[in-house]
Amino acid sequence: MFGVLVNVLTVCIGSVVGLVLKRGIPTKVTDALMTGIGLCTVFIGISGALEGKNTLVLILSMAIGTVIGTLLDIDRQLNRLAAWVEARFKRKNDQVTLAEGFVAASLLFCVGAMTIVGSLQAGLTGDCEMLYTKAALDLISSCVLAASLGFGVLLAGVFVLVFQGGLVLLAGFVAPFLTDYAIREMTCAGSVLIIALGLNIIGITKIKVADYLPVILIPPLLCLFM
């Protein structure tokens, strides 16, 4: 769990720095930085998606996971949670809602190859090296995101703790299902969602990425039979 705590700490530090510097950074600069982060996010997603070796597993995972996520309406539930907090913290004339910052940051920090593989690796072997690397990247990302999206990015640290911590604790239970093959396909599925998130950050699309989160959990089950 130490690697997860380090990651949460870097997210909080980066977010605080971004919030402090927010007023001193011109809007055009933060907009440009957000576009840059979005492009990097797309690149990270494409790189991870290439880890997959079985397109059929990805297609079936996307279909099954999308149905589950849509029926559960995960995106709306996350937005309701963030909106509940927003009602207590929102300031006048905010251009970006706390909910938007919370959801975008939570997905960016938690949906991806490094999150899944790093957390599982830490839980199974105690090796936190990948989580430390992710923490360094999240330090920079959270600073830029907080400067643009506000206080919601800081709250995303709680989601990082719960999500990554849960993966670490559950690693021992799911170990029998996590072959190298299954991990590659999980990485691929998660990376496709990262691409969607990057496109959202740039402003090209408005995909409800949270509704697709169950997609990441389907590949290990399919890999048992394929």
Score class of each variant (00 low, 15 high):
F2P: 05
T10S: 11
V16P: 12
G18D: 07
L19C: 06
L21W: 02
L21Q: 10
I25F: 13
P26K: 11
P26Q: 09
D31G: 09
D31K: 12
A32W: 13
L39C: 12
L39T: 14
C40S: 15
S47Q: 14
G48V: 07
K53M: 15
T55N: 14
T55Y: 12
L56H: 11
T66F: 07
I68M: 03
L71I: 12
I74M: 06
R76L: 05
R76A: 02
Q77F: 04
L78W: 12
A87H: 14
F89T: 13
K92A: 13
D94S: 12
E100G: 15
F102Y: 15
F102D: 04
A105Y: 14
L108I: 09
V111K: 06
G112I: 15
T115E: 08
S119Y: 02
Q121H: 13
A122N: 08
G123M: 06
L124K: 08
D127Y: 10
M130C: 07
T133I: 14
K134P: 02
A135W: 13
A135D: 04
L137Y: 10
L145G: 04
G152Q: 02
V153D: 01
G157R: 01
F159A: 04
V160Y: 03
V160K: 04
L161P: 11
V162Y: 05
Q164E: 06
G165D: 01
G165F: 02
V168A: 03
V168H: 01
L178F: 03
I183P: 11
C188V: 09
A189H: 08
S191Q: 06
V192P: 12
A196W: 02
L197I: 15
N200T: 01
I202G: 10
V209W: 05
L221W: 00
L221H: 01
C223R: 02
C223M: 05
L224F: 01
M226I: 02
M226L: 01
